[in-house]
Amino acid sequence: MSTFVPPTFEILSQVLEEKFGVLRDDIKPDTVLEDIELDSLALIEVALTLQKQLGVVIPTEDLNSSGTVSDLFDLVNTAAGNA
């Protein structure tokens, strides 16, 4: 049995950089998601990827491209708390 490891900001940053091509310098807590081309469709793909990699289920209705990277991280953590 593997032990669940809570996601860190670093893990989220890695996913955004490696899978979605976001430049590391653009991944800051206050970066607005649509400013790094993560629109509503892209965010669902981000959520699917995080679900596969981290086992967290983020409700798609909570995703908001007007939000920030920090908001997305909070969603991941909330989902992890529910996992």
Binding site: K19, F20, G21
Partner: peptide, 12 residues
Amino acid sequence: ANALLGRSTAWR
């Protein structure tokens, strides 16, 4: 595709 178009374009 990542090298030719950039990763942020290619993945979509």
